[in-house]
């Protein structure tokens, strides 16, 4: 699998990946739905697939001494690495933002660890729709990306909207009050740290398990594809 990953980096990496990583700088905007940064990373993943498609990468890889399942596994792991790269950058930017100006975000989730939950799920939603569809009909990649984009934005609206709603109704609804105190804040006390780390870990777990299932599903579909 290391060889396949090396192949991905050498032949399939596109400049759009580091370019879209720059959208992590959006966390410096005082008021913004920050989980959108996750979508830009998904966009970079789409560029990887598009470029690979243009380069007949599927056929090249399938002709190497690897199984057809390995072709999918290699790419999914590459996607995971790209997405984890974004998570690392987000963590770094959360720290920078905390040091520069630790203020709340009225446009959605605050720049805190809870945001990672949202971004992990953003990635999973994208992976769950795009990858199995791509490995069934690779030539329809743009259509699959459109469907995945719609789903990702629906999730972002739900995620960021939940925090806007929590902020507006925190006095009326006790649960919203708890969310605002523990999850949607720049953490300053142990309880908030624990809650936010737990949220990020739940997001990471859901992402890990979900992407593993997505990979299995994509492999099953790709086995039936004629190259």
């Amino acid at each position: 699998m290391k060889k396949l990953l090396a192949k991905e980096f050498r032949l399939c990496m596109v400049p759009m990946v580091p370019l879209f990583y720059l959208f992590v700088l959006m966390l410096l905007i005082p008021s913004y739905p920050y989980s959108v940064a996750g979508f830009f990373c998904c966009n970079a993943v789409f560029y990887v697939f598009s470029q690979a498609q243009m380069n007949n990468d599927l056929t090249f890889t399938a002709m190497l001494p690897v199984s057809k399942a390995d072709v999918v596994r290699g790419r999914v792991r590459f996607v995971v690495l790209i997405q984890l790269g974004m998570i690392v950058l987000l963590l770094a930017m959360l720290l920078v933002r905390r040091l520069l100006y630790p203020i709340a975000n009225p446009a959605g989730c605050d720049p805190c660890l809870t945001l990672l939950f949202g971004v992990f799920v953003t990635f999973l939603v994208f992976n769950a729709i795009y990858l199995p569809a791509y490995y069934k009909t690779p030539h329809r990649a743009p259509k699959h990306f459109l469907m995945a984009t719609i789903a990702v934005f629906a999730w972002i609206v739900v995620f960021e909207g939940a925090f806007i709603a929590a902020g507006a109704a925190q006095d009326a609804v006790p649960l919203f009050g708890w969310i605002e105190t523990y999850l949607d804040c720049i953490p300053t006390f142990t309880g908030a740290w624990i809650a936010q780390i737990a949220a990020a870990c739940v997001g990471a777990s859901v992402y890990a398990v979900g992407t593993w299932i997505v990979c299995k599903c994509s492999i099953a579909r790709f086995e039936r594809v004629d190259l």
Partner: peptide, 14 residues
């Protein structure tokens, strides 16, 4: 017909 913009060396090394 793969990797049009890559050098033969890079493809062979992979």
């Amino acid at each position: 017909e793969c990797y049009q913009k890559s050098q033969l060396r890079a493809i062979a090394e992979v």
